[in-house]
């Protein structure tokens, strides 16, 4: 089965052609228009600009994906598209276009929850993953841990009490004038550091749970930068900046993984899935590998191009979901629930 997967929930406009085989999904082609340069001067995504840019890229990304796959639209068996959650203006671009495509060509059409897409991205890594699994979905907007009984199921176990982990990277990069988006640049500099700066103190919660909070980390980083004259403008070659990035990398990875052992035991999880943009982080990937080995969990982390938002993950999820029975009145939903 050939699936065209489309994703435009935030600032990435992506289309992918995926072949669903008995052995799992196989990527045939992917097109992706990143808007990093567009939003970089603002230090974050500007929703109205994102939507305007998506609208101009609809033809490009879909045509490019089909051309790379050397497949005409008429050979597509199913169209899968992100329905939500996300920025409504961005969502509605590929969402509306996909419905029109499916309508005229009479192609089955599947609306996909964005987080099921991130879960589906892990199918490219380990298609035969044993369930139940813990799914840590972590990005600039999410830091959520789910229990999953299969590739189309997510049951929330816990989430960050304030900011998403990805924000810590973006804000740190901004405070250190390192550019946008922060995750990749902080990770790159962290890997160049000879040693980490002093560790950050982990938050403690009154209920004693191994929970998540990242707002305090941003404040601590701000104080740390302010305490060292010149650090904010020292630039990426400065050893102190690199050491601080490494410390942030190690801190975020350790904090994210801290609840996993106890919850894996409670839920009798057989696997650990980590997906979303922050799953690209090298330190998180390394620490997760060690932890999964220690706990005897099968680990599934998509390769980085499938971790950030992309059409392939939507195709992967859409291949397993039922097509909409009455698709044409279906609307995008910026607050779509699982």
């Amino acid at each position: 089965m050939w699936v065209l997967g489309l994703e435009s929930s935030c600032d990435d406009c992506s289309a992918a052609v995926v072949e669903e085989t008995p052995a799992g999904p196989v990527l045939r082609a992917m097109a992706k228009q990143s808007q990093d340069q567009l939003h970089s001067p603002y230090g974050g995504v500007v929703p109205e600009l994102a939507a305007r840019e998506h609208l101009l890229q609809i033809r490009n990304v879909i045509q490019e994906a089909l051309a790379k796959a050397e497949l005409p639209l008429q050979k597509i068996d199913r169209i899968a598209v992100t329905q939500g959650p996300g920025l409504v203006g961005s969502l509605l671009t590929l969402f509306s276009a996909s419905k029109a495509l499916a309508w005229r060509e009479n192609i089955p059409w599947v609306p996909v929850h964005h987080l099921l897409g991130h879960l589906g991205a892990a199918r490219f890594a380990v298609p035969d993953l044993p369930f139940p699994a813990l799914a840590l979905l972590v990005s600039g907007g999410h830091t959520h841990l789910y229990r999953s009984e299969g590739w189309t199921h997510l049951e929330l176990l816990q989430k960050t009490r304030d900011d998403a982990a990805g924000e810590a990277f973006d804000k740190t990069a901004r405070m250190l004038n390192l550019g946008y988006p922060g995750g990749p640049v902080v990770d790159t500099l962290a890997q160049r550091a000879e040693q980490a700066a002093a560790a950050f103190t982990a938050p403690k919660f009154r209920d004693g749970k191994a929970s998540w909070s990242f707002s305090g980390l941003k404040t601590a980083m701000k104080l740390r930068i302010a305490a060292e004259p010149g650090l904010a403008v020292a630039g990426p070659e400065d050893a102190r900046v690199q050491a601080l990035c490494r410390s942030l990398n190690e801190t975020v990875a350790a904090w994210l993984l801290k609840p996993i052992p106890a919850i894996a035991k409670e839920t009798a999880a057989l696997s650990l899935i980590i997906s979303g943009g922050v799953a690209c982080n090298s330190e998180l990937r390394a620490q997760a590998k060690l932890l999964a080995a220690r706990l005897g969990l099968r680990l599934a982390i998509p390769e980085p191009r499938f971790c950030t938002d992309n059409g392939a993950m939507i195709a992967s999820a859409g291949a397993l979901l039922p097509p909409a029975e009455d698709p044409w009145p279906v609307n995008a939903d910026s607050n779509l629930k699982l």
Binding site: A51, L55, L73, L92, L94, A97, A100, L101
Partner: peptide, 20 residues
């Protein structure tokens, strides 16, 4: 309206991809 015009234009763009 930004949002409402986007729905129409995106629909037209989707139809364009079918060869129209």
């Amino acid at each position: 309206g930004f949002t409402s015009l986007r729905i129409g234009v995106a629909t037209a763009e989707g139809l364009a991809l079918t060869g129209l």
